[in-house]
Amino acid sequence: MTKRKKLSKGQLRRIKANRSKKLQAREDAPLVDDASLGPEQDAVVISRFGQHAEVETQDGHRVKAQIRRTVDSLVSGDQVLFRASKTDDGGVIEAVHPRRSMLTRPDYYDGVKVVAANIDHIFVVSSPLPAFSSQIIDRYLIAAEDTGIEVSIVLNKTDLMTDELRDELDQALEIYRQLGYRVILASAKSAEGVAELGECMADQVNILVGQSGVGKSSLVNALLPQAELLEGAVSDNSGLGQHTTTAAKLLKLDKGGALIDSPGVREFGLWHMDPERVTWCYREFRDLIGTCKFRDCKHNDDPGCAITEALANGDIDEMRYFNYLRIIESMAEQKDSRHIKQKPLD
């Protein structure tokens, strides 16, 4: 086979220039003819997929819309300006209204990403299977506290618990009740707590967060049977959940408000946060911040630490404090791993 002749620098430069011109022309080309669009109206984003989104207009009509290239961020829950097509059932999203709240998560490749917008209430879902973990709950609570959005805790799958385990976990959750968190014991299977959960969600935009396998989709189906979300089973071998939701979607609740079901909130890394902010996100630490002997106190074995003194006096729960130290330690490990230089390829 004849070896292909290598392109010259000039040829490569011309190819690159032509490619840039084509890409620019594609970007400058209008999505649709503006004359074929109706007047601007408000709408809410139900879900997004690529350069399109499903929106719901104020009259309840759902439309598949194209997204203007000037819109650089769009997620479920966003309030948008929308123009419907005069010729078909489509339309165009022109702009996004300012968000009153955002739920974000860090991404190793894209930085901090917005998961959902305009949320009023975050429900942290846990369960006895996979194994109950107060540290995982604390991680979600930190992320929720950082947003300033109201947050509650849901212990799902209570039908799987023995009376002994129920008493044990209820005692563990009492710590959170004393800190002012609402705690709901629920079961999508037996319907325990489902009505209470629905009442808490009424007339708000809500989101369920929690690790895979805790039954978030099952709870959504219990609250909204018409949603028909696929439910995942917990692996018998590993005990780990099989995640089932593939795209964020805003679902309307019967009693008003909405529920966002999103795959982007299974896990919350915290490595993008400052340790001082994490400390503030612990409700029981806030009044003590700034009262330590040393300004750079790490709240570990530092002399004159107000937090460890409160711990010794029984004013701070030992498990919560242990979780705090482990979370701070893991954040440092994750930040270090992001700055390890890759070895050059041979």
Results as ranks from 00 to 15, higher is better:
residue 1 M to G: 15
residue 4 R to T: 14
residue 7 L to T: 03
residue 14 R to D: 10
residue 14 R to F: 15
residue 18 N to I: 15
residue 19 R to L: 15
residue 23 L to M: 15
residue 27 E to K: 13
residue 29 A to I: 04
residue 30 P to H: 12
residue 30 P to A: 07
residue 33 D to L: 11
residue 34 D to F: 04
residue 35 A to Q: 13
residue 37 L to K: 02
residue 37 L to A: 02
residue 39 P to I: 07
residue 41 Q to P: 01
residue 42 D to Y: 13
residue 43 A to P: 11
residue 44 V to N: 10
residue 45 V to D: 02
residue 45 V to G: 02
residue 47 S to D: 10
residue 48 R to T: 12
residue 50 G to T: 07
residue 51 Q to T: 14
residue 53 A to K: 06
residue 53 A to R: 13
residue 59 D to A: 08
residue 62 R to A: 07
residue 65 A to R: 10
residue 67 I to A: 14
residue 67 I to Y: 06
residue 76 S to T: 12
residue 76 S to I: 04
residue 82 F to P: 13
residue 83 R to F: 02
residue 83 R to P: 00
residue 86 K to N: 14
residue 89 D to R: 06
residue 92 V to K: 13
residue 94 E to R: 12
residue 94 E to C: 07
residue 95 A to C: 07
residue 96 V to W: 07
residue 99 R to P: 04
residue 105 R to A: 03
residue 106 P to V: 01
residue 108 Y to K: 15
residue 109 Y to E: 15
residue 110 D to Y: 12
residue 119 I to F: 00
residue 120 D to T: 01
residue 121 H to P: 00
residue 121 H to F: 01
residue 129 L to D: 14
residue 130 P to V: 05
residue 134 S to K: 06
residue 138 D to F: 03
residue 142 I to Q: 00
residue 142 I to S: 01
residue 142 I to R: 02
residue 143 A to F: 02
residue 146 D to A: 13
residue 150 E to M: 04
residue 154 V to I: 06
residue 157 K to I: 04
residue 163 D to L: 13
residue 165 L to R: 14
residue 170 D to K: 10
residue 172 A to I: 03
residue 173 L to M: 11
residue 187 S to H: 02
residue 188 A to Q: 05
residue 191 A to R: 13
residue 191 A to E: 12
residue 193 G to Q: 04
residue 194 V to S: 03
residue 197 L to T: 01
residue 200 C to S: 14
residue 200 C to R: 12
residue 201 M to A: 07
residue 206 N to M: 01
residue 207 I to T: 08
residue 210 G to I: 01
residue 211 Q to K: 05
residue 213 G to L: 05
residue 214 V to P: 01
residue 218 S to T: 14
residue 220 V to G: 10
residue 221 N to W: 06
residue 224 L to F: 06
residue 230 L to D: 09
residue 231 E to I: 11
residue 233 A to K: 10
residue 236 D to S: 07
residue 241 G to C: 04
residue 250 L to N: 00
residue 250 L to C: 10
residue 253 L to Q: 05
residue 254 D to A: 09
residue 254 D to W: 05
residue 255 K to P: 02
residue 256 G to Y: 00
residue 258 A to Y: 00
residue 259 L to D: 03
residue 260 I to D: 00
residue 264 G to V: 00
residue 271 W to M: 09
residue 271 W to N: 03
residue 272 H to F: 12
residue 280 W to F: 12
residue 285 F to W: 08
residue 286 R to C: 07
residue 287 D to I: 05
residue 291 T to F: 06
residue 295 R to D: 15
residue 296 D to L: 08
residue 304 G to F: 03
residue 306 A to Y: 01
residue 308 T to K: 12
residue 313 N to G: 14
residue 314 G to S: 08
residue 317 D to H: 14
residue 318 E to I: 11
residue 318 E to L: 15
residue 320 R to M: 02
residue 321 Y to P: 05
residue 331 M to N: 05
residue 333 E to I: 11
residue 334 Q to K: 09
residue 337 S to R: 10
residue 339 H to P: 01
residue 343 K to W: 15
residue 343 K to G: 06
residue 346 D to G: 13
